[in-house]
Nucleic acid binder design. Structure first.
Length: 139
DNA sequence: GCCAACGTTGGC
DNA sequence: GCCAACGTTGGC
């Protein structure tokens, strides 16, 4: 199983909306960046991801799970763009802020820190465990 | 709201 | 195929 991080501006699509989708999940549409798309194409059913609020919030608020493999993005005719579906698994007991992550030397290599503009990012297993610990949340 | 960093586009 | 111009993202 692989680990990922999904970024969204909560004003546009937030954790609460994701939770409201329930087990059916929701298309992670709107990605128009090749790296992010390639990450989604590499995902398997059951892969886990962090749900991060960008711009307003700047914190990881929950854990999601991939529930559909990459398929054409329904919001565009352009065949280049694919996306997966994800569903909420559980919220973080304590959200983990970007600030808190930056304070941990072992997390300095996280893509979130190194390349903050990438909207769908890989997360290593070690990073995954550490962030879940910071959030007092089951991995 | 600003602006640095980054990705994409398109003329040459 | 280069690179300048442009648009977008996202932390601050």
């Amino acid at each position: 199983m692989a680990y990922w991080l999904f970024k969204s501006e909560p004003d546009v699509w937030g954790w609460d909306q994701q939770v409201a989708r329930g087990a059916a999940g929701e298309e992670w549409h709107g990605v128009r960046n090749y790296q992010a798309r390639n990450n989604m194409r590499a995902m398997q059913i059951g892969d886990r991801g962090f749900f991060y609020h960008s711009r307003t919030g700047l914190e990881i608020v929950g854990i999601v799970e991939v529930c559909a493999l990459a398929h054409p993005d329904s919001t565009t005719e352009d065949p280049r763009w694919d996306c997966v579906d994800i569903r909420a698994v559980r919220p973080f007991v304590r959200p983990v802020s970007l600030e808190a992550i930056k304070k941990v030397p072992a997390l300095a290599e996280m893509v979130l820190v190194k390349n903050s503009r990438l909207s769908v990012q890989p997360v290593t297993e070690a990073e995954w465990r550490m962030v879940c610990d910071l959030g007092a949340t089951e991995a």
